[in-house]
Design a protein around this nucleic acid. Structure first.
Length: 306
DNA sequence: TCCCAGGTTCCCT
DNA sequence: AGGGAACATGGG
């Protein structure tokens, strides 16, 4: 398979088929809940402990983790291999990533120990872009709500799990038909003109995986920031979560607080200084460090006054 | 009622 | 150049 996301060392899990389900066995360094709930994606719906519905790449997935087994309900093996293994980044060696980070910086120990099972998802580019434009100045439940609303209005019906209906995220062609006014009617507020600009650039092909191909980190970021409503932070999220730039280090209010608390003696520090520090400290593993810190820090309210 | 949210833009020194 | 308010909407 074409390897878009850099070198991966193959993990030694096994894929088996039982009834209509496909099961991955002996999986390591992976926890479904930690991976889905750490704020990198917005299209997951908790059914039960370690039991989720996920919508991505025009597919509906019902998935459950049981120890070191991952059960893909009603899913054919080719879909697991071609869509979900890349999506969940299961072929990458996270043990190596964690060892690298721990050796480099013992301050990450607590975060990595607690959030040991995070993987960085490889999400669909245009959906990630639209989602993170929505994310500005909003809380995660609201973001989920808006992405779902847009999907129900403009996406395709995918199916039903536990009596709930699910819709795909609209493709770029459909996004291109949504007017600024229509985005406003979706309750996107002041983001409506931003979403409209992004949708137009996607639909007309001004911005696409194709036009971004071959660009380096800074070129890609600049291209993304040319979209109205996309700044440094949103661009970095899109690059990290959908374009394979694992060195990208999004600095939001949480990461700012957390980094100030862990590395800057709790003192107010400009975002660009944090950005620079992260680049020197974690290098090409910046994105991983960011997720461990973000997820751990947010849950434990690091740097906030209680 | 007030405050803030995985920010960005715009307007002001 | 750099700081700060404004921007819709929803929930605590």
């Amino acid at each position: 398979m074409d390897n878009t996301f850099g070198e991966k060392s193959r993990q030694n899990f096994r894929i088996e088929i039982e009834n209509k389900n496909t099961i991955i066995k002996e999986i390591t360094d992976f926890d479904l809940e930690q991976t889905l709930e750490c704020g990198q994606c917005f299209r997951f719906y908790k059914q039960d402990e370690e039991d989720y519905v996920v919508v991505a790449f025009n597919k509906l997935l019902h998935i459950k983790q049981s120890g070191n087994q991952l059960i893909f309900f009603n899913t054919e093996k080719p879909d697991v291999e071609n869509i979900w293994i890349p999506y969940f980044d299961l072929e990458r060696d996270y043990n190596e990533i964690k060892s690298f980070l721990l050796k480099k910086d013992s301050k990450l120990e607590e975060a990595i120990k607690e959030k040991w099972g995070i993987r960085i998802l490889n999400q669909e580019f245009y959906e990630t872009l639209i989602s993170f434009i929505i994310s500005q100045n909003k809380q995660i439940p609201h973001i989920k709500q808006l992405v779902r609303r847009i999907s129900e209005e403009y996406g395709e019906y995918l199916g039903e799990v536990n009596g709930e209906r699910y819709y795909s995220f609209p493709d770029v062609k459909t996004l291109g038909t949504i007017t600024e006014e229509a985005f406003r009617e979706m309750k996107t507020g002041f983001r409506a003109p931003y979403l409209y600009d992004a949708a137009q650039k996607l639909a007309t092909g001004v911005i696409s995986m194709e036009t971004l191909k071959g660009l380096n980190e800074n070129e890609t970021r600049d291209k993304l920031i040319s979209i109205k409503g996309v700044g440094e932070k949103v661009a970095n999220c899109v690059m990290l979560f959908s374009l394979g730039f694992r060195e990208a280090f999004p600095v939001d209010v949480w990461i700012k607080r957390i980094m100030e608390s862990v590395y800057f003696n709790g003192e107010d520090t400009p975002k660009d200084k944090i950005q620079l520090f992260a680049k020197e400290q974690y290098g090409e593993y910046g994105g991983y460090a960011q997720q461990y810190l973000f997820c751990f820090g947010r849950e434990n309210k690091v740097g906030t006054k209680k």
